[in-house]
Amino acid sequence: MNKTIVIIPARGGSKRLPEKNIKLLNGIPLVAHSILYAKANSEIIEEVYVSTNDEKIKEIALLYGAKIIDRPAELSGDLEPTASALKHVLQNINEVNNVILLQPTNPLRPANLLQEAFEVFLKNDCDSLFTVSRNHQKFGKIEANRFIPFNYKIGQRSQDLDPLYFENGLLYISKAKLILNKDTITSENAFPLIVDHPFVNVDIDTQEDFNYAEYLINIKK
């Protein structure tokens, strides 16, 4: 049996956007967007777990059909890595083969992304996979009041840059044993799945991020 689950880490106590995980986005609590996305892929996912330390988040997660893992205080701090919450979930449930991480701060995902990503994950027998997107900006450092280009030469056209990619956070897939044994979500040979979509720029930490997500939803409507 090849059991695959989704884990959504959603702690309370956000500082920049208070109670963001229960804030209504298009009439639906933020954390519920990821639960519903997981439920829409039930042919792949057997169970959906929300790891949280917050009573309101627990109520919403249960309402939308997720199972709850109570996250202890020592794993709920601002600096605590996500992998520790995932490991805690795996230590408290029955045997699991694959874990799909859906972050509640990335509520908008292309409908077919999870299915495509999981097919790539299985086909390549990956230890882990995560989504990336290309960045077309010109980066540089500032030293002694001078701008020093990092990924281009002065005068070089943007379309001629060597491609750079960023981790967009839309989804991660890992073998459970990687999380349990290595305390990490992404291995050194993790497969970078390239995603080109407006949703890759949505990562909600501030009210401005939230407003942008609503804007994209309204355009889609």
Rank of each mutant, 00 (worst) to 15 (best):
V50Q: 04
L86M: 10
L75H: 00
P72R: 01
P18S: 06
H33R: 10
L62M: 10
E43A: 13
I44D: 03
S42F: 12
K87M: 00
R71D: 12
S51D: 02
I60Q: 06
K15C: 04
A32W: 13
I57T: 11
P72Q: 01
E55S: 15
T82L: 14
L90T: 02
S76A: 12
N94E: 13
I69D: 00
G65I: 01
I44Q: 05
L79S: 15
A38V: 12
S42V: 07
V50M: 05
G77C: 03
I22M: 05
P29F: 02
K20R: 14
K20Q: 10
T82W: 08
N21S: 15
Q91S: 07
L79K: 15
H88D: 00
N21R: 15
K15G: 04
I22K: 10
K20C: 09
Y49V: 01
N26A: 15
K20S: 12
I68A: 02
P18V: 09
E43Q: 14
E80R: 13
L62G: 04
S76E: 03
A40N: 15
R16L: 13
D54K: 12
I35D: 05
L36H: 07
A61V: 02
S14P: 07
L36W: 07
N26K: 15
V89A: 01
A32E: 04
T82E: 09
